[in-house]
């Protein structure tokens, strides 16, 4: 369930990324930062938060254990 929520948020962010609502808006936030750029800078911060959430709620513990137990390096390649 938690993994599905993370996937849903990922897809939601992809849609939000298109931000056609500010496509033609040249308004300056704090008189220097164009709103379209400010939005996408904020988007980068939200991506970092999603990354944190993915690690907290969807971390591949099984995969980690699989990699650490009895390495088969000698037989592999």
């Amino acid at each position: 369930m938690k993994k599905r929520v993370i996937w849903f948020l990922f897809l939601l962010l992809f849609i939000v990324h298109q931000d056609f609502w500010w496509w033609d808006d040249a308004f300056l936030v704090f008189d220097f930062l164009p709103i379209g750029l400010a939005f996408h800078a904020g988007f980068s911060i939200v991506c970092a938060i999603l990354g944190w959430a993915a690690i907290k709620y969807a971390w591949p513990h099984d995969l980690e254990r699989f990699a650490e137990e009895n390495n088969d390096e000698e037989n592999a390649i």
Partner: peptide, 26 residues
């Protein structure tokens, strides 16, 4: 900004998995 989303997703979904197989099988 799209790289921030996609790169992080790839590190999580592809990078860790490839690392695991790399570590396991050399």
């Amino acid at each position: 900004s799209i790289s921030g989303l996609v790169h992080a997703g790839i590190f999580f979904l592809i990078g860790i998995r490839l690392w695991a197989f790399g570590k396991k099988y050399g």
